[in-house]
Amino acid sequence: MADVALPAQSIPTTSSSRAKALDRLRMGDVAFRILTRAAAITVLVLLGAVIVSLIDGSLPALRAFGLNFLVEERWNPVTERFGALAPIYGTLVTSVIAMAIAVPLGLLIAVFLTERCPIWLRRPIGIAIELLAGIPSIIYGIWGLFVFAPFLQQTLQPFLITVFGPVPVLSSLFEGPPYGIGVLTAGLILAIMVLPFITSISRDVFDAVPPVLKEAAYGVGCTTWEVVRHVVVPYTRVGVIGGVMLGLGRALGETMAVTFVIGNAHRISASILAPGTTISATIANEFTEAVGDLYTSSLIALGLILFVITFIVLAAARYMLMRIERRVG
């Protein structure tokens, strides 16, 4: 160390060595800048690569079936006839069930947390919800398979069948034996899974309402519900929709929680008690067993469809959340 440091101190730095040192620093700066920029571009390349590889992988299937792939219900590995309608249908129906339950519940919980919850309880409940949002989905799946599905088979499903059996239109919705597993069960599990997401996002969004607005409403004599209904919700509408769509994106793409309880049956039945399948469950169940290029390619094409659907939903969600962030910030 000393012998390096000494000459620099004793001999006055010549302008050339100074320029060299500056050059080195400048080079280091430029190199680091380029490095970080490359990493940022990597993120873009990643998304591009995902899309390109999925399109490339699904080309054989798309060439063989064309757009028919989207509307064909049959899925027959033996005759190599594949259609994506049943998985798409299953994905949409389970997500709709999940959102129909999780959105009202999540919003009501968020209202409770921001308006009515005692202050000392807000932090613990908020943290608990955020921790729950981090629980891996396979945990929900295994619980659904061993605990929830048998429970539904014995209680809710027979109840639904007997209650709605005589009703004309609804009877077909709840037709057939109670299997336990099936589209309804998958939807309910998904609902539990996305509930923490929706709750924590809507809570954050509700918290972004300026207190002055709420206080003014309370000041003219509004009830809590009226404040929520006419001040909080209109102010945060965009953000809430964004949060809901983010939850929807999760629900659409969720694999493990669904695969356990959906039953993996490639058919479209009117009854939501019947087993069905979703895009992600089909891929998870069949990909490693798929023989033949066409089979594999059809599964990748399913993945592409899923990616496109979730991309659109997530992009819309981010756009909406960005709008509310801009308003707050």
Binding site: V43, L46, R250, G253, T255, G303, F307, T310, L314
Partner: peptide, 9 residues
């Protein structure tokens, strides 16, 4: 978007 893209993809 990548943050919440389906992991199976």
């Amino acid at each position: 978007i990548l943050l919440s893209a389906p992991s199976i993809v």
